[in-house]
Amino acid sequence: MLRIEQLVKRYPTGDTALRGVSLSVAEGQVVALIGPSGAGKSTLIRCVNRLVEPTSGKIWLRDTEITALHPRQLRRIRRRIGMIFQEYALVERLSVMENVLSGRLGYVNFWQSWFRRFPQTDIDQAFTLLDRVGLSDFIDKRADELSGGQRQRVGIARALIQSPDLLLVDEPTASLDPKTSRQIMRLITELARERGLAVIINIHDVPLAQMFVQRIVGLRAGEIVYDGPPDGLTPDRLSEIYGAEDWGASQATTAEQEPSLTAQE
């Protein structure tokens, strides 16, 4: 449903973030994008909804060529692409409800949004989603009163209320503790399955990605160097993506951490 062809992004500073990336994501497929910092993961998903303008290459969502759209058409297609951010990117001084409803901005006109007159169907949906992500008691709280995990849940609800076909997720767990990280990853993957969404998740934490995702794409210096199932990520493969390191040792440490984590729960 998403097809990326020979995507290149060169920044005005001369840095080349993507060097001809081609990638297809099927309907309902969840893909984890891994790779070291600066590999171009963030740039790649931002090119999909053109928060970053690609230098060359084509991106198709179903049969729409996103890279060829005019601003007005682009806004239309962005409604079908939900996005979730590392630092949650909520509007701190707005309430949880307003933050969630802001996901509907593409569907209402300016004055409706200015006076917060959203259609009742949108409001019903916001209540349902907030209930689903476990925040029914926080509807009137301001976003800056919430904890990291709660904020990310608001971010998830905001992305889903768009009724997207595709979800772009940028480091959803990088600012969260290990337990909350798992809960958030579980929530995202569950919701994607319930709604049949295609998802691209940028993620640093390889074991976490392996735990929740069936397909992993490894990016290194703007090029895809791995595309396959999670258990295909051997130490050799990881070295290819991240550079040489004692991968067996790091995985062992993660395994050791498990019991203490469950003990805390």
């Binding site: 297609i77 962005r78 996005m83 630092e87 990117a89 909520l90 509007v91 802001s102 593409g106 971010g155």
Partner: peptide, 16 residues
């Protein structure tokens, strides 16, 4: 900048 990016990504207009 993050909230600006997030609201832009929903398909909101410039004024929104």
């Amino acid at each position: 900048r993050e909230p600006v990016e997030a609201i832009t990504a929903t398909g909101a207009s410039r004024l929104q």
